[in-house]
Design a protein around this nucleic acid. Structure first.
Lengths: 226, 226
DNA sequence: TCCAGTTTGGAACAGCGTTCCAGGCATGTC
DNA sequence: GACATGCCTGGAACGCTGTTCCAAACTGGA
C-alpha cells in the first residue's frame, strides 16, 4: 500500500507547503498563517519547512503567485477589451475567494514588484489594442496600477461586512456614517453617500476598467475602432 | 525657565508620539518603528504610550494621516484637471519623502479604507469637472484607486535602487533582467524592457493621471471643454 | 555494509506588541 | 498644611512571532 520511497504519510515538498499555506490563509485569514500552525498542519518541524522555503515573505509570494496562476490561466477569446475585462474579473473573483490576496497584491505593488504574470497578461492586450510601441510600458503600468488598486479595494469591500452582516446593511451603515460627517470639511463625501447604497462592487470595478480603457483609446487611438 | 505645568523635559502627548513615530519611520524605515525604539526616543515606558494611542495600527494610521494632511494642504488654483494633477504630485512627493507611506496607503486601500482626506479632495475636482452626479462615486473611486496604486508603485521605484546605486544603473539592471526572461512566457515584458531605460517615474505617473482624466472626459463629458 | 548527502523535527533565541500595576504628580477640599 | 482623588507614567512581565541551530533519521550508491 505504501510505496517504498515514502517516508511519512506524505513527503514534504515546496508545493505541499505552499498548498497548506493557502488553505490556512483561506480558512483563518492572514493572522492564521504561522510557522506553528503550518508545522502543526503538516505534522513536521519548522526546520523542515525552512529547508524548502527561505522565509515567510517568500512563502507568501509563492502562495500569491500560485493562486494568481490558476485565476489567470483561462485566456478568454475575443477583442482585447473583452480580454482585459476578463483578466480584471479573474482578479476580482480571486480576491473575493482569497481575501488575503488583496493585502499581498497591495504590498507587492507598494514595493514596486508588480507580479510579472499580471504585467505580461495585460501588456499583451495593450499591444493588441493598437497602442503605439513607445507607450506600451507606460500604458500597461497605468492599467495594472488601476487594476490592482481597485480590485483590492472593491473585492475587499465585498467581505468587509463581516460574516453575519449582509452587504446591504453594511453599505447602509457606511452611508449613514458619511452623511454625518462635518459638512464644512467633507461636503463631497456627504453628497455622495446616497450613491453608496445598493451599488454593486463588481459593476463599479468594471466601470472603472472601462474608464481607463476609454482613456487609452482617447489618448493613443484617436481614430481607432472600439 | 521651566513652566509650572511641565512635569518632565516635555509632557507626553498624542501629537508628540505621532511626530516621533514619523521621524523614526523616516530615518529607519518601517522596521525602525518599534515600541522599544519609541519609548527610548521619548524617554518613557510602553504604558505611557498606550495611554495616548490604542495600538500600533492606530499609531501608523495617525502617522499616515498626519503626513498626508501637510502634503495635501496646499490647494492649487486653476482648472480641475490641474488641481487633480497637483494632488497627484503632492502624493507622489510625499511618498518619495516618506517611503513607508506607500506601504501604509496600500494597506489601507486593501482594507477598503481609502483615506477620507484623499477621497474628498479628489471628489471635489471630479464634481468640478462636470461629471454627472450619478457617477460621482464611481468616478472618484476609480481615480483614487489609480492614484494610490500608481503613486505607491512609482514613487517606491524611485528609491528602490538603494542608497548608493543611482537610478539609471538600477533601471539598466531591471531592463537587462527583463531581456533575459523566457521568450515563450514573457514576450511582451521582454519587448518592453528597452522602454524602461531612462524613463522618468514622475512623468509616467502624470501620464497615467492624464490617461484616466481622458477616460473620464470621454465617458462622461463627450462634448465638454478640456 | 558502510558512507556521504539530503531531509527532518524540535529545542532554543531574540524581538515583537501588548498588558498590568505600583507609584508619581497635579489638583480640589477641608 | 494635610489629605484624598484621578490622570498619567515607567518598567517588568507575558505570550507569541519568525528564525536559527543541530542531532538524528533516512536514502541511494559504492
Amino acid at each position: 500500500m505504501t510505496p517504498r520511497t515514502r517516508r511519512r504519510a506524505e513527503a514534504l515538498s515546496r508545493d505541499r507547503i505552499v498548498e497548506a499555506a493557502v488553505e490556512l490563509l483561506d480558512t483563518s485569514g492572514e493572522a492564521g498563517l504561522t510557522f506553528r500552525t503550518l508545522t502543526e498542519r503538516l505534522a513536521t518541524g519548522a526546520g523542515a519547512i525552512y529547508w524548502h522555503v527561505a522565509n515567510k515573505d517568500e512563502l507568501l509570494a509563492a502562495a500569491t503567485d500560485g493562486v494568481l496562476a490558476t485565476a489567470l490561466a483561462a485566456d478568454a477569446p475575443g477583442p482585447p477589451r473583452d480580454r482585459v475585462r476578463a483578466v480584471a474579473l479573474g482578479l476580482f473573483d480571486a480576491i473575493e475567494g482569497h481575501p488575503w490576496l488583496a493585502t499581498q497584491l497591495a504590498l507587492q505593488l507598494s514595493r514596486g514588484t508588480v507580479p510579472p504574470r499580471i504585467f505580461e497578461t495585460i501588456g499583451r492586450q495593450v499591444r493588441a489594442l493598437g497602442v503605439p510601441q513607445g507607450h506600451w510600458f507606460t500604458t500597461t503600468s497605468a492599467l495594472v496600477s488601476y487594476l490592482l488598486g481597485a480590485a483590492g479595494q472593491n473585492a475587499t469591500n465585498a467581505r468587509s461586512a463581516g460574516p453575519h452582516t449582509n452587504r446591504d446593511e453594511f453599505l447602509d451603515a457606511v452611508s449613514s456614517a458619511w452623511e454625518e460627517l462635518d459638512p464644512a470639511e467633507y461636503p463631497f463625501t456627504r453628497a455622495v453617500a446616497a450613491e453608496l447604497r445598493g451599488h454593486d462592487d463588481r459593476e463599479q470595478f468594471l466601470a472603472g476598467v472601462d474608464l481607463v480603457l476609454a482613456g487609452i483609446t482617447a489618448v493613443h487611438l484617436p481614430a481607432g475602432p472600439g
